[in-house]
Amino acid sequence: MEHDVAKYDLVTTWKGGKASQTCCRSCIIGEQIQPSSHYVIDSDEPEMLGGQGLAANPQQLMLAAFNACMTAAFAHEAEQVGIILTYLEIQTCGELMTNISARCQSSADNSSDRLQYVIRVSGNGNIRQFEQIHCRVISASPNRWLLAQNMTIEGDLILI
């Protein structure tokens, strides 16, 4: 996490219906190409939205990326201050509009889009240390920052 910029190259191919497949072709952090970056991610809409429900839908993938980014940031921040984690789980629940054009046509604000997450953590730190880590994660997670530009995000921390 010592580099300020990462470059990504992804290609998404339509697979029929509402399904798609994304190939993560490269990731460059600093000037170094990261090995093994040819991952494949499938996506499909649920049947109610016209898909077949054969893979996670785009919103689930977005929230999975949110959780993964927060998890990595939390583990990194804990490591930076010498805290050894024994358990870390982030649960996110959200309410997202499924029809963005309806929002554009209405004068309503984005208050209906809301994420709530709970971080369950244990390790050799105390509640104050974990709260400080959580505050640093809020500042450090690029995915959290991006989503927070357009919706309300509320988080809780539970020491277990």
Rank of each mutant, 00 (worst) to 15 (best):
L54N: 10
I83T: 14
P46Y: 00
C93Q: 12
V11R: 09
C27T: 14
N67S: 14
S37V: 06
L88V: 07
E89G: 07
A68P: 01
S122W: 00
V40F: 03
Q32A: 11
A73C: 08
A72T: 06
L10E: 09
A55N: 06
F130P: 04
G51K: 00
I90H: 03
L63Q: 05
F130W: 00
N57G: 01
L49A: 12
A68Y: 01
T22W: 05
C69K: 00
I119P: 00
A72P: 07
D44A: 03
M48F: 13
L49I: 08
G53N: 11
H76P: 08
A108T: 08
F74Y: 03
R136L: 13
F74T: 00
E95W: 04
G17W: 02
R128D: 05
T92S: 01
A78E: 07
L88R: 02
M97L: 09
L96S: 10
Y87D: 14
L88G: 12
L61A: 01
E47P: 09
S37L: 11
E89T: 12
C104D: 14
G53A: 11
G125N: 08
I90V: 13
Q34W: 13
A6F: 01
A72R: 05
A19G: 09
Q129E: 13
P58H: 14
Q91W: 04
C104G: 15
P35I: 05
Q21N: 05
T98C: 07
N124S: 12
T12E: 08
V121I: 02
K7G: 04
I84Y: 12
R103Q: 07
F74I: 00
L88D: 09
K7M: 15
R25A: 15
L96A: 06
A72G: 12
G51H: 01
P35Y: 01
Y87L: 12
M97W: 01
K18W: 06
T12P: 13
N57H: 01
L96Q: 10
D42V: 04
K15Y: 02
T13N: 05
Q59C: 11
M62V: 08
S20P: 02
I83S: 14
